Amino acid sequence: MGELQDRELIFVFTGPDGSGRKTVADSVGTTFGIPKVVSYATRKPRSGEIDGQDYHFISAEQYAEMEGRDEFIESVALHNCRYGLRRDDIEHSFQQDGCIYLIVNPEGAEILKQLYGHHVIRIFIYADRATVAEREERQGLSQELIQDHLSHYAAAMAYQSACEHAFENYDLAHTVFDITNTLEAYLQRNLVERD
């Protein structure tokens, strides 16, 4: 792992499943033109998910081979599926772009913080349990999966106090606006307002 420069930052979006962290993260990333490092997953794509954009969807066998080669900087098992971030993807993105963002669960966020220290800015996205359940129902997730996610809700919420920033996500535009204002200080782009 190479030494990171001061301006090389990893914006890590985390929080409970169903909080909207992916939608918020992608909107913020697009606003700033920051590339996303995409995780690998052994599950099938859900409705609307695109391979290479939401996750790299691979087989359990491919995942095991990559893990055997120690390619993952972070690897977790959730809901009978494996999710991982490749070390090379992060390193390559830093060389190309300097700043990146990614979307991981609290366990992944903590691993990245331990590895990269002050270069990691954790952005915790949350909503109340009822809102989370309602969003996941609208996404067409099974009741079994929704209940499984909700069983981890309290543990995920407990990670909020460890994060550098937390945002309640009930209105997407408002949440994205607040986060972009917050991240501007880290990026120090010296933008000038024009009339």
Rank of each mutant, 00 (worst) to 15 (best):
G68R: 13
Q160M: 13
S39C: 11
S161I: 14
A60F: 06
K113L: 10
D6F: 14
D54A: 00
Q95G: 05
R7T: 12
E110D: 12
I90N: 04
F177Q: 14
G20F: 04
E8V: 09
A158T: 09
N181Q: 14
R46M: 12
A158M: 10
M1S: 13
A173D: 10
E91K: 10
A158D: 11
I100P: 04
Q147H: 06
I146C: 03
I58V: 15
C81Y: 03
F167P: 12
F177D: 14
V28R: 15
I50K: 11
I123T: 07
Q114W: 10
Y55C: 02
L183A: 06
T180L: 10
R69Q: 13
E144H: 08
S19Q: 04
G48C: 03
T31V: 12
Q62V: 10
C99H: 10
H165K: 11
L78E: 05
R7H: 15
M66Q: 09
V37R: 08
A25K: 09
L115A: 10
R7F: 14
A127N: 08
C81I: 03
D88W: 13
I125E: 05
L191A: 07
E65C: 05
Q139H: 11
I125K: 05
Q147P: 02
Q139V: 01
R82A: 03
N169P: 05
D70F: 12
V12H: 03
H92V: 13
L141H: 14
G29D: 07
R69N: 12
R21H: 03
E168H: 14
Q188G: 10
F32G: 08
K113A: 11
E49Y: 07
H119V: 11
E65Q: 14
Y83T: 02
H165L: 15
T175M: 13
K44Y: 07
I121T: 11
E71M: 13
D88E: 12
R194H: 01
I34L: 10
G98S: 07
M66N: 09
D6R: 15
R129H: 00
E193F: 08
E144F: 01
I100T: 09
F94E: 04
D51T: 03
F94N: 06
A162Y: 14
E110V: 09
Q96A: 10
Q53C: 05
G117H: 12
T42Q: 03
H152W: 12
G108L: 06
S27D: 13
R21V: 00
H174L: 15
V176T: 11
V37G: 03
E164Q: 14
A156V: 00
F11D: 04
E74P: 01
Y116F: 15
R138S: 04
E193N: 04
L187K: 08
F11Y: 09
Y63R: 00
R46T: 05
L85G: 00
H92M: 12
Y186A: 04
A41C: 07
D17S: 15
E74Q: 13
F124W: 07
Q147Y: 03
